[in-house]
Amino acid sequence: MTIIFHKVHGSGNTFYLHEEMPNIPYDWPLTAQKMCDPSNDNGADGLLIISQSTKADAKMRVYNADGSEASMCGNGLRCVARFVLTKLKQTKATIETMKAVLSVQQVDPIFKSIDTYSVEISPVSFELSSLPMMYDDNKRVMNSVIPEFASDIRFTAVSVPNPHLIGIVPIQYIEESQFQEQLATSFNIENEYFPDGVNVSFVHPVDESSIFVRTFERGVGFTNACGTAMTASALVSATINLVPFGDVTVYNPGGFVKCVIEQNGEHVHLSLIGNATFFATYSGELSDDGEFLCNSIILHEHEIKEYKELEHHSQLKIKDGWSRNENL
Results as ranks from 00 to 15, higher is better:
Phe202Met: 13
Val198Ala: 12
Gly219His: 09
Ser186Thr: 03
Leu183Thr: 08
Asn241Cys: 09
Val213His: 13
Phe212Asn: 10
Gln180Val: 13
Pro205Thr: 07
Gly219Arg: 13
Gly246Ile: 05
Gln182Asn: 13
Glu217Ser: 14
Leu235Lys: 00
Ile189His: 12
Cys226Glu: 00
Glu190Val: 12
Pro195Val: 05
Thr215Val: 11
Phe194Pro: 06
Ile189Asn: 05
Glu181His: 15
Asp207Cys: 06
Gly227Ser: 02
Arg214Gln: 14
Asn188Thr: 07
Thr249Tyr: 09
Pro205Trp: 05
Val236His: 00
Ser186Gly: 07
Thr228Glu: 00
Leu183Arg: 10
Phe187Gln: 06
Ser186His: 13
Phe202Glu: 06
Gln182Ala: 08
Leu242Asp: 00
Ala229His: 03
Ser237Gln: 01
Phe212Pro: 15
Thr249Ala: 06
Ala232Leu: 01
Gly197Tyr: 06
Phe202Arg: 09
Ile211Gln: 06
Asn188Phe: 03
Ser209Trp: 08
Phe212Cys: 15
Ala238Asn: 02
Glu181Gly: 14
Gln182Phe: 03
Ala234Thr: 04
Asp207Val: 12
Leu242Ile: 07
Met230Ala: 06
Glu192Ala: 14
Val213Trp: 11
Gly246Ala: 08
Thr231Leu: 00
Asp247Leu: 08
Pro195Asp: 03
Phe245Thr: 07
Ile211Lys: 11
Phe222Pro: 04
Asn224Cys: 09
Gly246Cys: 08
Gln182His: 11
Thr185Val: 06
Thr223Trp: 04
Gly219Asp: 15
Ile189Trp: 12
Phe245Pro: 04
Thr249Ile: 15
Pro244Phe: 06
Asn241Val: 01
Val200Asp: 10
Ile189Val: 12
Ile189Pro: 05
Phe194Ala: 07
Arg218Phe: 03
Gly227Met: 02
Asp196Glu: 13
Gly197Ser: 15
